[in-house]
Design a protein around this nucleic acid. Structure first.
Lengths: 155, 155
DNA sequence: ATTGAAATGTAGGAAAC
DNA sequence: GTTTCCTACATTTCAAT
């Protein structure tokens, strides 16, 4: 499968779907002055080729009792392939961990942790995260307020 | 409008839609052993009451030329309401800024910045971020690798 | 690759329980 | 609040360009 470049029409479709994937092909077609069948075919290809990874519902975290978001910076003892792989595998299993990135700089990983409150975070920290092997330090920062939070990349 | 509590059925619907919002009501109904109309009504309510904020397409950032993700920690000169509000308002206007959170700890804000590469980040930093008023320091960390990245809260 | 039109399936609304 | 029924609309396929 040749990975064709995206044209302006593809990009416009992606822009729209990143913001609202509940729009119908008809509405998208009308915005972009194309036929419904063409939009359908383009969207099918964008999914098939992996540009669109998935379509998800974004919830209001405060309404579902995930009021506390923490960013936790983790430093490991060493950086052997084994140590890194073990940490990544184990930390990914925790449902509280929504994101885990290996980073440049003075620590190794940054985690985004979602819990209901500080008690739940504390429990996660003591009984899950801090029990993983080879951790030197964990430094946590908590979200006070959310100024902007979007999933759409600027394209 | 009374904000009713969510029952197990609501939570199951939210769990499913957080992972795949392209499923039809029919498929959800079959998974949960309920009728399509019931699922339809529950989903309608979950949207109306704001539990579901929006439905979006998640793209593969590397395929759309957003290979570089930075987390930037920002410290401001002061914390008057005016200074905070101005920073929040202005930084939110930049399309590269996908997230902005005010934080506890040794800095004021954490930003998630998406750009194509280090040159583009540098340009963003010098010509946009660093030009905002009242910034004391910006410390940036870059994603080396993505171990886990989901939008679904654990519920 | 794009289109209009046909066929299929789903969403959305109404009425009864 | 749930179910069944019904209509409108959306998706999907296809032949033609």
């Amino acid at each position: 499968m040749a990975q064709a470049e995206l044209d302006v029409f593809d990009l416009n479709i992606l822009r729209i779907l990143q913001k609202d994937a509940s729009l119908t092909n008809k509405e998208i077609a009308s915005q972009l002055n194309k036929s419904v069948a063409t939009v359908h075919e383009r969207v099918r290809r964008l999914k098939e080729q992996g540009y669109i990874k998935r379509v998800v519902a974004i919830l209001d975290r405060k309404k579902i009792n995930k009021s506390l978001i923490a960013f936790s910076q983790v430093l490991l003892h060493d950086h052997t392939a084994e140590t890194l792989a073990t940490f990544e595998r184990e930390v990914s299993k925790f449902p509280e961990v929504m994101e885990c990135f290996q980073m440049t700089g003075t620590f190794d990983f940054i985690l985004r942790i979602a819990t209901s409150d500080m008690d739940a975070y504390h429990d996660f920290y003591r009984n899950k995260l801090a029990k993983l092997p080879n951790i030197t330090t964990v430094q946590s920062f908590f979200v006070l307020s959310e100024t902007k939070s979007i999933t759409a990349y600027p394209i």
